[in-house]
Design a protein around this nucleic acid. Structure first.
Lengths: 163, 163
DNA sequence: TATTGTTATACTCTATAACTATA
DNA sequence: TATAGTTATAGAGTATAACAATA
């Protein structure tokens, strides 16, 4: 990005912060994508969808997945189709509303996700190894503050992290 | 992502931190992409390439752009082609090496980028308005610490922010 | 009429690898 | 033989919009 070069700015600090955050996130995300592809032959969106379904034995409806994953419905259909073809999730009818489905992990999907999640956590822990526990907490808090204000400001929801 | 749900983890703090950081970055990035498209009919990679060229009157070679933008050479060719077609950048021959080009902003490209950069900075400043200057600095420092360690760990370079 | 979900389309970005031209 | 850059290909992700079925 190297956009710190623009000069005569009134708020260069926020810009510098954003560029560092964006760069770092892209760096970690790129590594996660590579590992998911090489070790499990999958992608980040597919992993994310499965992560959304974990601890939801009743599954989630398509529109809930769409909201949580911050992508449009058509894309969720495509990702779900792929996972169904691999036997990792299934569509189950919703009683009382014949338009809707609940998407659930299959037994095989749940088992595979457990493996992936364990590996994934290792990659993330390694990425943040340079911070002490107190620093991890401080960073978490600061980002929470940004997120909170950002939401108020833009009326965007926070589908993720909604555990 | 909602991956905080996985349970019996030994390092849930790093994972929670990563999910919050990823969500927030995606939120801001998505807004930046939308604004760039709606207000300027451009994309983030095109904006990034132009940002790399600002304050480089002599331009940058393709492989330098590739390294700084963290994408492969073929992609830089494509993005550059688009910008050339729009008259925003130009390829200039390098004396002494007839294989290489220097990619430079045109006058029109420089002028347009100034407009875009001003708007862009406003979006970013708004996104981080919830933090005090001291908090912005603290966040910047903490992310720097992560980045530094991460690089040592993975031998990845830091092309961005290299101003 | 509104909502759930799918389909169709088109575009951007991406990585990989083969290729040309020059060093 | 190595390097600079391009081309070709294929795949993944995205948004938009039109559509079917149901509420």
């Amino acid at each position: 990005m190297d956009m710190e070069a623009r000069g005569h700015s009134e708020h260069p600090e926020a810009l510098r912060l954003w560029l560092r955050m964006l760069t770092l996130t892209q760096l970690i995300e790129k590594q996660v994508r590579t590992q998911l592809r090489e070790q499990f032959g999958t992608t980040l969106p597919r992993f994310d969808l499965m992560a959304q379904l974990e601890r939801k034995p009743d599954g989630l409806k398509m529109n809930e997945l769409s909201r949580r994953m911050m992508v449009t419905g058509g894309n969720v259909t495509g990702i779900t189709d792929q996972l169904v073809a691999e036997g990792l999730v299934e569509r189950i009818e919703v009683e009382g509303d014949r338009r809707a489905y609940r998407v659930c992990l299959t037994t095989r999907g749940r088992s595979l996700f457990a493996d992936m999640a364990r590996q994934h956590e290792g990659w993330i822990v390694a990425a943040f190894e340079g911070l002490s526990p107190a620093e991890v907490e401080a960073l978490h808090q600061l980002l929470g503050k940004v997120k909170q204000h950002y939401h108020l400001d833009t009326s965007l929801e926070t589908p993720l992290e909604s555990a």
